[in-house]
Amino acid sequence: MTDNEKQTDSTSIELLSFRVGGQDYSVDIMSVREIRGSAKATSLPHAPFFVKGVINLRGTVLPIIDLSARLGLQTGEDTERNVIIVVDLGGRTAGLMVDAVSDILAIPTEEMQPPPDLAADEARTFVSALTIVDGRMIRILDLEAVMPPQGEEVA
């Protein structure tokens, strides 16, 4: 690693940015296991509205979260173009269904800001930080909040 790239190590964080419901979001790339095309999900009875169902990810059952529904954004059409970002959070794996993956960004931590309190819309709960890249606001997703509740009956 050269001096020029130094900013990308301990003081910065790498993000995978993507578009969902017409907005720019991102997740810490360390949480991302893989990115794959959409597949027909098997719906789960009594599941929350944002749980699309489960798909077969090489033999394991992967719950799919419709992120636009989860974030209260306008629900895009369920198309073949959808992309699933497989994320891992403390051993739990889930697929986030998004419109498209945009980029990988290295953001210095000091450029990350907490989300303003005024933003009272539903999506606010799911954003852990904000940053500006090329004039666009990128929201950093709070994965913990997005994941479906676990360990209890989701009725």
Binding site: L44, H46, T60, Q150, E153, A155
Partner: peptide, 14 residues
């Protein structure tokens, strides 16, 4: 059999 509980949680009736 593939458990659901590990990845998602218990689903009533399933």
């Amino acid at each position: 059999i593939k458990g659901l509980e590990g990845s998602y949680g218990r689903v009533p009736g399933i």
